[in-house]
Design a binder for these strands. Sequence first.
RNA 1: AGUCCGAUAGUGUAAUGGUAACACUACAGAUUUUGAUUCUGUCAUUCUAGGUUCGAACCCUGGUCGGACUACCA
Length: 554
Amino acid sequence: MSEEKSLNFLEEIIEKDIAAGVNNGRVHTRFPPEPNGYLHIGHASSICLNFGLAKKYNGQCNLRFDDTNPSTEETEYVDSIKADIKWLGFEWSNELYASDYFEQLYQFAVKLIEKGLAYVDDSSAEEMAEQKGDIGKPGIDSPYRSRTIAENLQLFQDMKEGKYPDGAKVLRARIDMTHPNLLLRDPIIYRIKHVHHHRTGDKWCLYPMYDFAHGQSDSIEEITHSICTLEFIHHRPLYDWFIEQLGIFPSHQYEFARRSVSYMITSKRKLLQLVNENHVTGWDDPRMPTISGMRRRGYPAAAVRQFCEMIGVAKRENLVDIGVLEFCVREQLNKTANRVMAVLDPVKVILTNYPEGQSEVLMADNNTEDENAGTRELTFGRELYIERDDFMEDAPKKFFRLAPGLSVRLKHAYIITCNEVIKDANGNITELHCTYNTESKSGNDTSGVHVKGVIHWVNAATAVPAEVRMYNRLFTVEDPANAEGDFKDHINANSMEVNHGAFVEPSLLKAQTGNQFQFMRKGYFSVDRDSTAEKLVFNQTVGLKDTFAKEMKK
RNA sequence: AGUCCGAUAGUGUAAUGGUAACACUACAGAUUUUGAUUCUGUCAUUCUAGGUUCGAACCCUGGUCGGACUACCA
């Protein structure tokens, strides 16, 4: 084993179980989403955990949809969830649904009734809340708690047969109304819902509660290590109770702290609100913390996986800096993204000593980090565009770019020197008149001139206009979920800035949706699905580290 | 108030009774035809009070602080 790396607490548990021969050393996990929303970064780490553990210990991982509440669940979500898991690079052993077990779950409930461990309750929701007691205050028994087994059996069957309206009756486990764990104070296990289910149709009007479905589903699938987030820790005694009373396979649940990421929210309810109220353009808006959003933004799946691996797993509350995710994105893209040149905020450069009407072809490597990335051709000419902020009229001494009288190298091309600044009536710079050093051609430089700065450019004659969508954090505060006031008060009004005036090199005309590039010196960008042959559209994935900008702020 | 969970550099995670470490960040420097990448270095950490022990981040007890739980949601 290459166990240089230390184990996280779940791996420790699993390795101890394997060593002790628990379940004959078998490891079987599962990822159990409810199909009522799109998967987000939090799910991504759960997916990496569950599928990763199964892979590491030669086990299996099921995909199980927890579809016990037909009121909120839809097939659209099932499809998106499957697509997201595949994109992340994982394959499930079995595609399963809690609804597959409705009949079996019903029989489990009957068995509990027969053992005198469940009863039908006619109390209203309010009455039950009243009887439940409170934290530190014991509850009291429902007046229906002592119905006979025969009566309960009959009533439960009547419920199944649709003889009662929604909410008229529920089935409850008979445990202990004074238990310090509120979840064990006779929890509801079945409720009546005359609702169409996305898979079972109108077969049922009786649906199990999550707590009566989840643990038993794990048990039915003989899941050995059922891993979930910390808030379900109080549910574990209940699952164990069902398993014991039913005498079924003993799955064990282990809880970890969900990972929060700064400037992101992962509440499905809030995410849905962002979509429905048009604060974003959809579930896959590149600003969303959803897997589909990150994919559209251009985050590589490998970066998301690396991130999940890097932040680890433990049981304490946490808020991971979003910078770690961005670091992973850059690290992956640095190795894989081809370099191209794009000028986001152009200003025209005229090379006064370059013959009019002339042009030449230059060779450029696509990625020095990847020797297999190949090369491409660039056209050079008399009129070019460079980045407006790569020029300064009054440059400080540490400014290694273009300024009157100063020289820079144009990447893959020549060294140029600025001679004259042309302005319009308002004083805005419209053109920079420069000369190029004819002996300084890239790769063939005999000029003996050394310049510190290198800037990117595009040839005005062949440049292609493009729309570039720049993104900032969706929220203005680190922890929007826990900030003062409503989370929507903290939405960043400038989270997207659309630039319609960019120019990119013509090689990008061949780019396909989803292709990722480094716009040299600017950042990583990907082709959006809105992009067409007539109009190229790019998403800013993440900027490059910019120590110069940081320096300038000081 | 009851039960449960947790507390290690700014952040995240290790160290499982024997020299507190790794990554990110920050800062400084080297290299660089991307002020990117790469490389080198620097700063900074065990909530608290007792106890057990030759020795405690780790085990025990008390305290403090933070979190979770009182849906016919999952």
